[in-house]
Design a binder for these strands. Structure first.
Length: 287
DNA sequence: ATCCTATCCTGTAGGC
DNA sequence: TGCCTACAGGATAGGA
């Protein structure tokens, strides 16, 4: 989406706020990007990578409140919390705005970007290299962490955040409190499939605006219309009408429907029981 | 090794 | 209206 609006543009200059984000923004960013042509935009998990001519890549993460804004003609007034302004030669601009400053901006050679610590430990991206059900079962083997917190762990699978973890588990019919290592392969099949569905649709719809997130054009993302459970505590489940519950896991909210997501897999999932037992009895995975 | 907690920061919503 | 607290889309260092 971003790519078709900015590819081919040449950087005239970059201005930084000087404020620290999750880590300090490299002070040589303007010097590294000036005069270069923007060649590609890629996504890996929650990271956005912008490749420039001359083999330089800008790595970014929005954190909780970050956003990239594209301005065909940038506003003149003082906009708050804008930490990087990339001005293009044609007068347009790309801004990184982040009130909470949990975001990240980093630059390095394109060739070695894979080795950046932020990316090196990332698990498979569900859209780029979709994991299979058995693949996920393997990654989860022996894990005692809840399946909700498992899905949030970027080292295991990349790109799932707090909203989509609840949405994926609801659509897969899996109770978020169950230990990840105890899910049956057929349940992982469902989780893998619905992860692709949910994240794919979320990307298409430019995300979920909850509060203040905005797309490139400063508009709300429309995934909010598609939410089945997130932020709907006490409201009726869109599948069965039962009440949506809110619980806290790892200090973060989880939303689910107890009847659509039973503690024990439903009957009809009888085959699952056998597999689950077999998986949980295997020796722990070793690093 | 695995899991959990606290922490970074600002804005907003709700109670009083 | 103002003041207070709780909570918010994330990652990670450090401790149990």
């Amino acid at each position: 989406m971003l790519e078709r609006h900015v590819r081919g543009r040449t950087v005239r200059g970059v201005r930084l706020s000087g404020l620290r984000l999750r880590e300090a923004v490299p002070r040589d960013l303007p010097a590294r990007l000036r005069g270069r042509r923007l060649e590609a935009v890629r996504r890996l998990g929650k990271y956005l990578l912008v490749d420039f001519s001359g083999g330089v890549t800008l790595l970014s993460h929005l954190g909780m409140s970050g956003r990239w804004l594209f301005h065909p003609t940038p506003p003149r007034g003082r906009e708050p919390h804008v930490h990087a302004r990339i001005a293009f030669a044609d007068g347009s601009a790309l801004w990184f705005q982040d009130p909470r400053r949990f975001g990240l901006l980093r630059a390095r050679d394109t060739a070695s970007m894979d080795q950046d610590p932020a990316l090196a430990t990332l698990g498979p991206d569900p859209l780029g290299s979709p994991p299979s059900g058995p693949g996920l079962a393997e990654i989860a083997r022996g894990a005692r962490v809840s399946v909700k917190n498992f899905l949030l762990d970027q080292k295991r699978i990349a790109g799932i955040g707090n909203i989509y973890a609840s949405e994926i588990l609801h659509r897969a019919g899996v109770d978020p409190r169950r230990a990840a290592g105890r899910l049956a392969v057929r349940e992982w099949d469902a989780v893998a499939r619905l992860t692709r569905v949910v994240l794919g649709e979320a990307v298409e719809r430019m995300g979920t605006t909850f509060g203040s997130y905005r797309t490139l054009w400063n508009e709300p993302g429309s995934y909010g219309e598609r939410l089945f459970v997130y932020d709907r505590a006490g409201e009726p489940c869109r599948s069965c009408g039962g009440p949506i519950r809110r619980i806290v896991q790892g200090q973060r909210s989880t939303y689910f429907c107890a009847s659509c997501q039973p503690r024990r897999p439903r009957r009809g999932a009888a085959a699952a029981k056998t597999v689950r037992t077999a998986v949980s009895r295997r020796p722990r995975a070793r690093g």
